[in-house]
Design a protein around this nucleic acid. Structure first.
Lengths: 209, 209
DNA sequence: GTGATTTTAAAATAAGAAATCCATAACAGG
DNA sequence: CCTGTTATGGATTTCTTATTTTAAAATCAC
């Protein structure tokens, strides 16, 4: 969530205060779009939440679409941070179980609202905003890599059989997580997430030596 | 997709032609909302697609929200029909594999556009339209039941171990399917769906006797 | 056939949201 | 300080979209 000022798009470098305001807008937008969806969040809603005027929003973002792109980047980074804060590495069955519990707990705290911060953006935007789609794809890729690294580590250590395919298992786990978050959001209970992850973890543990 | 006229909401019974028009509106709306999302589909878009005027839409539906509800019911019924046309029952590993292949094939034909017809509605509406949410929940329930029935059948026949829990496996499979459809939509390739379903089928087959 | 009801057409209204403007204030670098 | 750039306030315009209205045409039940 930091930011290296590597020469902002040529024009318009931001001052300290400007950066703060911009961040405030993005996180306000992220919050609202997570709760109400992108289309369900008007620029005016963002203004109120971030305590800014419309001129400010359009000063920092050419159009709403640009703001949405910033939100995607913000959410992607934030999710990765969250993941890493839950478990340093997913490199043991124990770590995987801890992570599973933490994900379930998170949904409980959220009262099953909002599904996945990235997934819901993906569902809404993938087919209508190519630009957004590729950013979301990249976000998922990073997430997948985080999971895969842990599994590869397990395999290196000899915990996971050589016949296991960490790349596939990581993708499958992420896939089930996404489905679980979606169904949890619809049903307003964590059962689908629990059952989905448990099944996938059982599958992974079938490769444990 | 048929309709028994069990005394339409007291007032306003529909004539044959009226029913046709109504159906045309719903299926046009369903198509567009699948492609562009609910918020991304204006009533005017629906008018053009269905070749009707706005007065017709508002004659059959009190407001857009009502139309959306009709779309949910339509898509739920349609999806169930599709599922049953792919495989009569999911009551053997072979049937499960056939089904898996068919789902992947379907996404290829759709060029990975649109994700799941029910899932994408769910993602967009669950948290903002309680009424829609419960209808979507019911839709998923039916789907889950369809899967569960097959697994129970397998267990009855002694193919599936007594230690397997058909309810959980069915829910887990549906969960992974949803995640797979979502990630497939984002990545524009069927790999997540394939890997997810394969892993879950492997897990199920671990209970095979 | 006829009178009531349902269906359709076209235009008008209303509401909401995106984007623009213009004036003013704050700031950074020389 | 002084000056050009960046930041802000908030009214205004421009668009898009939902919804209503009015009235004519088609259809149905008797």
């Amino acid at each position: 969530m930091e930011k290296l000022n590597k020469a902002r798009k040529s024009k318009h470098r931001l001052t300290k205060k400007g950066e703060e305001t911009r961040d405030r807008i993005v996180s306000a937008a992220a919050k609202l779009m997570f709760e109400k969806g992108v289309a369900g969040t008007s620029v005016e809603d963002v203004q109120k939440e971030a305590q800014v005027g419309s001129s400010q929003i359009y000063h920092y973002f050419k159009e709403k679409r640009e703001l949405v792109k910033a939100v995607i980047i913000y959410q992607t980074e934030k999710e990765l941070t969250t993941q890493e804060s839950l478990v340093i590495q997913l490199d043991s069955m124990e770590a995987l179980k801890t992570w599973r519990d933490a994900m379930v707990q998170l949904q409980i705290e959220r009262q099953c609202r909002g599904g996945c911060p990235i997934g819901s953006l993906a569902s809404e935007l993938s087919d209508i905003e190519p630009d957004a789609r590729s950013k979301l794809e990249a976000g998922f890729m990073k997430w997948e890599t985080f999971i895969r690294k842990g599994l590869i580590e397990m395999q290196k250590r000899g915990e996971l059989g050589i016949n296991a395919n960490p790349s596939e298992l990581a993708l499958a786990l992420l896939t089930t997580l996404q489905g679980g978050l979606l169904l949890t959001q619809v049903r307003k209970e964590t059962l689908p997430l629990e059952v989905g992850l448990d099944s996938m973890l059982a599958h992974i543990s079938s490769f444990i030596i």
